[in-house]
Amino acid sequence: MRVFPVYAPKLIVKHARIFLTGVIWVKDLGRLEFEKGRFLLPRKSLPKVKQAILELNELIEAQN
């Protein structure tokens, strides 16, 4: 598990694309899981977490 002390979308996306499957922890967002290079949306999450995951997945799609 990698810990990101700040929310840096480009760096987080780079990590997810390299490792494809895993878990990261982002300060103020908490634990985020990714599989096959995409972030998974938890069943229950705060609106800011949901927005961050959608933003990260959009960045991943834009890079493909």
Score class of each variant (00 low, 15 high):
M1Y: 01
R2Q: 15
F4P: 01
V6L: 07
V6M: 09
V6D: 06
P9Q: 04
P9V: 04
P9R: 04
K10W: 09
L11Y: 05
L11T: 06
I12C: 02
V13R: 02
V13T: 09
V13C: 05
H15S: 03
A16H: 01
A16C: 07
R17E: 14
R17D: 05
R17P: 01
F19V: 15
F19P: 01
F19H: 11
T21P: 02
T21I: 08
T21F: 08
T21Y: 07
G22T: 02
V23W: 10
V23P: 02
W25M: 10
K27V: 15
D28H: 14
L29F: 10
G30L: 01
G30M: 03
G30S: 02
G30N: 02
R31M: 08
L32R: 00
F34V: 04
F34K: 00
E35T: 12
E35R: 11
E35Q: 11
E35A: 13
K36H: 14
K36Q: 12
G37E: 07
G37C: 08
R38S: 10
F39K: 00
F39L: 02
F39S: 01
L40N: 09
P42L: 04
P42K: 06
R43Q: 10
R43H: 09
R43T: 10
K44N: 08
K44R: 12
S45M: 13
S45Y: 09
L46P: 14
P47N: 11
K48Q: 08
K48H: 08
K48E: 07
K48R: 12
V49C: 05
V49M: 12
K50C: 05
K50D: 09
Q51D: 08
Q51C: 08
A52F: 05
A52D: 00
L54D: 09
E55C: 05
E55L: 08
E55H: 13
E55F: 09
L56F: 03
L56Q: 00
N57W: 02
N57I: 02
N57S: 02
E58R: 13
L59K: 05
L59T: 05
I60H: 04
I60E: 03
E61C: 05
A62M: 13
A62F: 12
Q63R: 04
Q63Y: 10
N64R: 03
